[in-house]
Design a protein around this nucleic acid. Structure first.
Lengths: 201, 201
DNA sequence: CTGTTCCTGTAGTGATCATTCCAGTAAGGT
DNA sequence: ACCTTACTGGAATGATCACTACAGGAACAG
């Protein structure tokens, strides 16, 4: 009763719709994504899409949520023996996620750059999800330099995230770019700066 | 004969169309920008838009070109007495440009994030224009650390640009963010790293 | 006055848009 | 056996899409 079985293939249909929506959306953005295109790519009629999702906006919210999960699974928690190693692993894990699960950031940034008179709910959702990710990083940063000024650490974290986001963009502008090289440099610079913050007190 | 006068108000109409297009495009992206909306916002009929520009794609190319000019005027060349000061001024100049002329990056990044089967010509144009900007920075970087390994300097430049791009994104995600603070940190980190590159040889 | 160039205004074109209606079907519960 | 729930298929709706055809006006050249 409470735990209901799936009668038809609704569960899989939902997945197929989401997969198709991700594909189309990352190709052409929100307005460029037509329900007809999602329908065609998923093999399901528009009415099915509207049975699973209230409207286009809700579909995008679901897509973002879905891709966030994949993103978080891809960025594995670093557990190096030293702080230095842990930071390096975090950096390379993020670099991997850029390859394996780029859709979350790609879609999210598309939405973030828009300035609609009324904000898309998917945009807001993206920002909320990202805050969750940021909190994880904040915990990690405090762990690395417990003695440092919290405000300064926070500022450095903002910078570190911005740099990573920028590297994602750079990869889109130049697919041949060696991200691992840049992420190594990133990790080194951030660790250096963080250690200096710890000593300065 | 060679230098023709404007019979009607074509020159100003073109500007009005571009201004309207920038506004609509930064609100909703490429597919979300309708010629009807540009027409309404500019006060000119669609036929005028199509007289000035071959099609929607060409209009976007022109918009990007126009905003690039504004962007470059806004990022004033730094001429501090020391390298440190020059770098700081470059950083704060870029931060100013983020406020005064954000449309170039906003539109460009929107286009960059898309992955259409056939690339928009405006996207390609954006990448070309950005390369011009990058070359200016490369010249500046070499000037700062002439003794350093050129490949290492180039990598650091890629990182520096990425970080700046990421800060632009961060500003869109959190309009209350203090960019100057982040840019100061950025300039310091980059100068430190560049000096270390110079000494390492 | 005549012709040319530049630009605007009106009124369309067929295609595609998001969304809805609703009848139909397959499976589960009872 | 029958009712309910979960979905699908197809057709339709009115709005909006990029773009065009074309006639006409304003400014200049001769």
């Amino acid at each position: 009763m409470a735990e209901r079985k799936r009668r038809a293939n609704g569960e899989e249909s939902r997945r197929r719709i989401l997969a198709a929506a991700v594909e189309v959306a990352t190709e052409r953005g929100y307005d460029g994504t037509s329900i007809a295109a999602v329908s065609q790519k998923s093999g399901l009629p528009a009415s099915s899409i509207y049975w699973h999702f209230a409207n286009k906006e809700a579909l995008f919210e679901a897509v973002l949520e879905d891709r966030f999960e994949v993103w978080m699974r891809s960025v594995t928690a670093p557990e190096g023996s030293s702080e230095m190693q842990a930071a390096m692993m975090l950096a390379s894990g993020t670099a991997d996620a850029f390859h394996e699960a780029p859709e979350f950031l790609r879609l999210g940034f598309m939405l973030v750059l828009e300035r609609r008179p009324t904000e898309l709910s998917a945009r807001k959702r993206f920002l909320d999800l990202r805050d969750i990710g940021r909190q994880r990083l904040a915990d990690f940063a405090v762990q690395l330099a417990p003695a440092a000024d919290p405000a300064a650490v926070d500022r450095l974290l903002s910078y570190a995230i911005a740099a990573a986001d920028g590297m994602f963009l750079a990869k889109q502008m130049d697919p041949g770019l060696d991200l691992n090289e840049l992420f190594d440099l990133h990790a080194q610079l951030m660790i250096d700066a963080l250690m200096r913050l710890g000593e300065a007190r």
